[in-house]
Simulated assay, not measured.
Amino acid sequence: MQTAFAIKTAARHCVLAVQATSDEMLIDGIADGEKSAMHILYARHHVRTYRFILRIVRDTTLAEDLVSQVFLDVWRTASQFERRCQVSTWILSIARFKALSALRQRRFEDIEQDEVLQIADDRDDPETAFNRARTSDVLRTCLKKLSPAHREVIELVYYHEMSVEEAGRVIGIPQATVKTRMFYARKALAGLLRNEGIDSLAA
C-alpha cells in the first residue's frame, strides 16, 4: 500500500511539474535538443494549431500534414525564438504562413471560414433552436462576403480570442492596422446582417 501510494504521489508531482513548465522553458529545452520538451509542447498546442490550419485550408488531410510541418519547424528553429510574443502566437504565425503557402500552391484564391457559432443548445425549445440555426447560417453567409483580410482578423480576434497585439503578430501587421481592419470588418458585417433582418447576433 505504501509503495502504491508513493508511486501515485510521484506521478502526481510529475504531472504538476509538467503543468508548471512554461512554454518558454519548453522552447529553451527544445533548443537544447530535449525531445521530452518537444513532446510536451506538441501535446499542449497541436489541437489548437490543427483547428487553426483547418479553418484556412478546409482539408483535414492537408491540415494534419501541415501541423507536422509546423512542429518540425518549431523543433528546427526553437533557438531562433526571440520572446517578442507568446510561444502560442509564434506557433500560429508559422501555421498561418504554411497554410497560406499551401493554398497558393493549390491555387486557392479565397479562404473559406465558417462554423463560428456554437451548435444550438439541446435544451433550447424548437423556436429558439430554429432562430439560432438561422442566425448561424446567415452569419456564415455574411462572413463569406467579407474580404479575406477582414475575415481573417474576425477569425483571430473572436474565434481564437486573440488580443489585437497577438493578431497583429500572427498576420504580420501593426496593431493600428489590425484595429482598422476590425473597425471596417465589424461595420461591413453589421450591414450585411441588417440586410438579412438580423440586428444583433444575440437575437
Rank of each mutant, 00 (worst) to 15 (best):
E166H: 08
L16C: 10
L26S: 02
R104Y: 06
M182K: 15
E112K: 13
K8N: 11
E82Y: 07
D28C: 07
E161P: 00
K179G: 00
V15A: 13
E109D: 14
R169P: 00
V116M: 13
Y159M: 11
E34K: 15
L54D: 11
A167K: 03
L72W: 09
T21I: 06
H160C: 11
Q175P: 12
A10L: 15
Q69I: 04
C142I: 01
V18Q: 15
E152M: 14
S200R: 08
Q19L: 10
R151F: 00
L146W: 04
I91G: 03
T60E: 14
N195E: 14
A203R: 06
L201W: 00
Q2P: 02
A10Y: 08
H39P: 00
M1R: 03
M162S: 04
S200H: 11
E152P: 01
H45L: 07
T180N: 13
I171T: 02
I154P: 01
R12V: 09
C85E: 15
E152Y: 04
K8S: 10
R181C: 02
T3C: 01
T61F: 12
R181L: 15
S136W: 00
D199G: 08
R58F: 02
L117V: 11
D122E: 12
E112G: 10
S200L: 04
G172E: 05
K98R: 15
Q105A: 12
Q2A: 10
A6V: 03
Y159Q: 14
V157S: 07
V170P: 05
Y159A: 13
D23I: 05
I154F: 10
K8A: 15
A31C: 02
S93M: 07
L156D: 02
R132K: 14
E24A: 11
R169C: 05
R83D: 02
V74D: 01
L201F: 04
P126M: 00
Q2E: 13
R51M: 13
P174K: 05
I56C: 08
L201M: 09
L143D: 04
K145L: 13
V116S: 07
V74H: 02
E82T: 08
A176Y: 01
T61G: 13
K187V: 01
L201N: 01
V18K: 15
W90H: 05
V164N: 09
F130T: 00
I56R: 10
L156C: 05
D114C: 12
M25A: 13
R134F: 08
R51C: 07
H13R: 15
T89P: 02
K144H: 14
T177D: 10
L92M: 14
C14N: 14
L103C: 13
S36I: 09
D121K: 00
M162E: 08
V18C: 11
R186Q: 12
A63Q: 06
L100D: 02
T77F: 12
Y42T: 03
A129P: 00
A10Q: 13
E115N: 14
G168E: 07
A95T: 07
A99P: 06
F97Y: 14
C142N: 07
F52H: 08
E82H: 12
H13K: 14
G191P: 00
L192A: 06
R84N: 14
R96I: 08
L156R: 09
E196V: 00
H150I: 00
L117F: 11
K98M: 10
E112Y: 13
D137C: 12
T3H: 07
Q69S: 11
